[in-house]
Lab assay of single mutants.
Amino acid sequence: MLYRITVRNADGEKLEIVVEMSEDEVRALAEELRKAGYEVRVEPIPEGEEP
């Protein structure tokens, strides 16, 4: 499935990426980023919607 991941650092800089991963993989990635001090938001992209 496609997911949009938005990551912000302490300075407020934002990075937005689209990935194709399983829900478990995305959850693990988000958890690791949060542990590293980043603010993370994950949104699933519905099938048929443009990323």
Score class of each variant (00 low, 15 high):
12 G>H: 04
50 E>R: 11
49 E>M: 13
37 G>T: 01
7 V>I: 09
25 E>S: 07
51 P>I: 06
46 P>C: 07
5 I>Y: 00
16 E>P: 02
11 D>Q: 13
7 V>R: 02
11 D>M: 13
1 M>S: 11
13 E>C: 09
22 S>A: 10
26 V>E: 00
18 V>A: 02
18 V>K: 06
40 V>D: 00
47 E>K: 15
25 E>L: 10
25 E>R: 06
46 P>R: 10
43 E>V: 11
48 G>F: 13
1 M>A: 07
40 V>R: 00
51 P>Q: 10
21 M>S: 03
32 E>R: 14
28 A>D: 07
51 P>F: 00
41 R>T: 14
41 R>D: 08
44 P>K: 12
19 V>N: 01
15 L>C: 06
2 L>I: 09
19 V>T: 04
23 E>V: 08
23 E>S: 07
37 G>A: 02
38 Y>M: 05
49 E>G: 14
42 V>S: 01
11 D>E: 10
23 E>G: 07
26 V>F: 02
29 L>R: 03
20 E>D: 05
39 E>I: 08
14 K>A: 09
10 A>Y: 12
5 I>C: 02
2 L>Q: 12
31 E>G: 09
6 T>Q: 05
16 E>Q: 10
45 I>Q: 05
22 S>W: 08
9 N>C: 02
50 E>N: 15
43 E>Y: 11
35 K>N: 06
25 E>F: 12
1 M>T: 09
24 D>R: 02
37 G>L: 01
26 V>R: 00
15 L>A: 10
45 I>R: 03
35 K>W: 04
6 T>L: 07
43 E>G: 03
13 E>L: 13
32 E>F: 12
8 R>C: 05
23 E>R: 04
42 V>I: 11
50 E>Q: 12
26 V>A: 08
22 S>V: 06
47 E>M: 15
47 E>R: 12
18 V>T: 06
37 G>Q: 01
32 E>K: 15
5 I>V: 12
24 D>K: 05
44 P>C: 06
42 V>G: 01
30 A>H: 02
21 M>P: 00
32 E>M: 14
9 N>Y: 08
35 K>H: 06
47 E>W: 08
35 K>M: 05
21 M>T: 03
11 D>A: 15
10 A>M: 07
36 A>Q: 11
2 L>F: 10
6 T>K: 05
10 A>E: 07
23 E>Y: 12
45 I>L: 13
50 E>S: 13
43 E>M: 08
38 Y>D: 02
33 L>N: 00
18 V>W: 08
3 Y>W: 12
2 L>P: 04
14 K>N: 05
24 D>I: 09
41 R>L: 13
17 I>E: 02
20 E>M: 15
29 L>S: 01
30 A>S: 09
35 K>D: 03
16 E>N: 08
24 D>H: 08
19 V>W: 02
4 R>F: 04
21 M>W: 05
37 G>H: 03
3 Y>S: 01
15 L>G: 06
43 E>P: 00
11 D>W: 14
6 T>V: 09
16 E>S: 08
2 L>T: 06
22 S>F: 09
39 E>C: 04
44 P>D: 03
36 A>Y: 12
11 D>Y: 13
24 D>T: 12
19 V>H: 01
20 E>S: 14
41 R>S: 15
28 A>Y: 14
46 P>S: 10
22 S>K: 12
29 L>T: 04
45 I>V: 12
11 D>N: 09
13 E>P: 07
7 V>K: 01
32 E>V: 15
3 Y>E: 01
1 M>Y: 13
16 E>W: 07
8 R>P: 01
4 R>V: 07
51 P>C: 10
31 E>F: 07
28 A>H: 13
1 M>C: 06
29 L>M: 08
10 A>I: 06
10 A>N: 14
4 R>A: 03
35 K>L: 07
28 A>F: 09
42 V>D: 00
33 L>K: 01
17 I>W: 15
28 A>T: 09
19 V>F: 02
32 E>T: 15
46 P>D: 09
50 E>T: 14
33 L>P: 00
17 I>Y: 10
34 R>V: 10
50 E>P: 13
21 M>K: 03
15 L>H: 06
11 D>L: 14
12 G>K: 03
27 R>P: 01
15 L>D: 04
47 E>A: 08
40 V>Q: 00
51 P>W: 00
48 G>I: 13
23 E>I: 07
45 I>M: 08
21 M>I: 05
29 L>Y: 15
9 N>E: 03
34 R>M: 07
7 V>L: 12
50 E>G: 10
36 A>M: 11
13 E>F: 15
27 R>L: 11
51 P>N: 09
10 A>P: 10
23 E>C: 15
38 Y>T: 02
49 E>Q: 10
43 E>N: 07
37 G>V: 01
24 D>W: 07
36 A>T: 11
20 E>P: 03
4 R>K: 06
2 L>G: 05
5 I>E: 00
28 A>I: 11
31 E>R: 06
29 L>V: 08
15 L>E: 05
49 E>D: 12
6 T>F: 14
30 A>N: 01
20 E>T: 13
15 L>F: 09
7 V>Y: 15
36 A>N: 13
40 V>K: 00
26 V>Q: 01
17 I>T: 06
49 E>F: 14
47 E>G: 13
20 E>W: 08
29 L>P: 00
7 V>W: 13
24 D>S: 14
4 R>H: 05
6 T>G: 01
24 D>P: 09
24 D>G: 09
30 A>R: 03
34 R>E: 05
4 R>G: 01
6 T>H: 09
19 V>M: 06
40 V>F: 02
35 K>I: 08
30 A>K: 04
15 L>M: 09
3 Y>G: 01
18 V>F: 11
5 I>G: 00
31 E>H: 11
48 G>T: 14
29 L>E: 01
51 P>H: 09
38 Y>F: 15
50 E>I: 14
27 R>K: 09
21 M>C: 03
13 E>T: 11
12 G>A: 03
20 E>Y: 15
38 Y>H: 04
3 Y>I: 07
5 I>F: 03
29 L>I: 09
18 V>H: 06
9 N>L: 10
21 M>E: 01
24 D>L: 15
4 R>W: 06
33 L>R: 01
22 S>Y: 11
27 R>A: 07
33 L>C: 02
18 V>Q: 05
31 E>C: 13
49 E>N: 13
47 E>L: 12
7 V>E: 00
13 E>Q: 13
44 P>I: 15
14 K>D: 10
44 P>F: 07
28 A>S: 12
24 D>Y: 08
24 D>F: 11
8 R>K: 14
2 L>S: 06
42 V>L: 05
6 T>P: 00
35 K>A: 07
9 N>K: 15
46 P>N: 13
31 E>I: 10
13 E>N: 15
45 I>N: 06
48 G>L: 15
30 A>L: 09
19 V>K: 04
14 K>G: 08
9 N>S: 09
6 T>M: 06
45 I>A: 04
1 M>N: 11
22 S>L: 15
14 K>S: 11
16 E>T: 09
10 A>T: 08
50 E>A: 15
37 G>D: 02
51 P>V: 08
35 K>C: 03
23 E>Q: 11
27 R>Y: 10
12 G>D: 04
7 V>G: 09
38 Y>K: 03
13 E>K: 13
13 E>A: 13
17 I>P: 00
41 R>F: 10
